[in-house]
Amino acid sequence: MTDSIRQFFADRKLRDYATGYAFVLPALVMYVIFVVYPFFYTIYLSLTKWDGAKPVKEFVGFLNYEKLFADPRLWSALSHNFIWIILGTVTPVAIGLFLGVLLWRGVRGMVFFRTVYFLPVVLAPVAVGIIWKWMYNPQFGPINSTLRAVGLDVLAKGWLGDPYLALPAIILAGVWGYFGFCFVVIMAGLQNIDMEQIDAALVDGANGLERLWYIIIPGLRHVLTMITAFTLILGVNVFDIIWITTRGGPGRATHVIATYTYNTAFRESYVGYGSALAIVMGLVSLVLSFIFISIRERGGD
C-alpha cells in the first residue's frame, strides 16, 4: 500500500496532478455539499408531497409540475419577473448611457457626480426598500407631501397600495439603487471608444443621435450585453426589495417567483410544491445565464 503511494508520488506527472487537485479540492467540496447536492435534493423534493415535517416524503412523480402549469399565481409571478427584467434593464441602462455620454469628455465635478450616482449601489436592497417605502408612504411620505404642498393633491396616490402602481413604484426604487452601477460600467466602456471616429463623424456632419447610434452604441456593445446579462439575472432573482416593501401585495400585484416560492415553502409549508417552483426558477435562470455566458465568451474572444 505505502509502496504504491510512494510510487504514485514518485511519478512526477501524477504528483503534478495531485497538486492541481489539491488546489481545487477545498472549494469543490464546499461547492458540492452546499450547492450541487441541495440542487438535486430540490429536484427530488419537487417530486414529493411533503409538509416539511412528516417523516415520510410521499413520492408523487410529476404531479407538482402538472399543478404548476395550471397555477395562475405562477404565471402572474413570472410575468412580474418579466416586467422587472424589461423595465429594470432598459431604464437604468438608458440613464447610465445618457449620463455617461454627458460626462464622457470630462467635466468639472466629474468625481463628485460619479461618487453620488454610485452611492445607492453600496446600499443593501433591504435599505433601498425601507427608504422607498417611506418615500411612498401615502400620508406622511415625502412624495405625497410634496405633491400636496404644490397643490397636486390628485396625484398623491397610495403608491404601494395600488395594484397598478405598486410594481412600477418598486422598480423605480430598484432603478434608483442600480443606475449608478450601469453608469460606472458604461463610463468604463466609453473610455475604449476611438475619439478619432467621433471627430471624423463630426466632420462628416453626423448629428448627436447618429453618433450615438452608429458609433457609441456599437462601441459599447460588449459592455451593454454584460450589463443586460447582470440585470437579467437580478430580475429573475429579485426578492429582498419586494419582501421589504409589499411582501408581494397588494393582492398578487408584486409577487415574483422568489417571493411566491418562499411563501409557499416556508410560510405555508408546501415544501414539495415550493421545490417545484424553485426548479422552475432554476430553469429560467439557467436558460438566461446560459445566454449570458455564451455572449460573454464570444464577446471576449
Binding site: 461547492y31 455539499i33 452546499f34 450547492v35 450541487v36 447536492y37 441541495p38 440542487f39 435534493y41 430540490t42 427530488y44 423534493l45 439575472i233 429573475v236 432573482n237 426578492f239 417567483i257 422568489a258 416560492t261 418562499y262 415553502a265 416556508f266 415544501v271 415550493g274 421545490s275 424553485a278 426548479i279 426558477m281 432554476g282 435562470s285 439557467l286 445565464s289 446560459f290 455566458i293
Partner: peptide, 18 residues
C-alpha cells in the same frame, strides 16, 4: 460555472434541512 446559474432560491429549501 454552472453554479453561477443556480439561483439561491433553487437550493434554499433543502439546504435548510441539510
Amino acid at each position: 460555472l454552472v453554479g453561477l446559474m443556480v439561483p439561491f432560491t433553487a437550493i434554499m429549501i433543502p439546504l435548510f434541512y441539510i
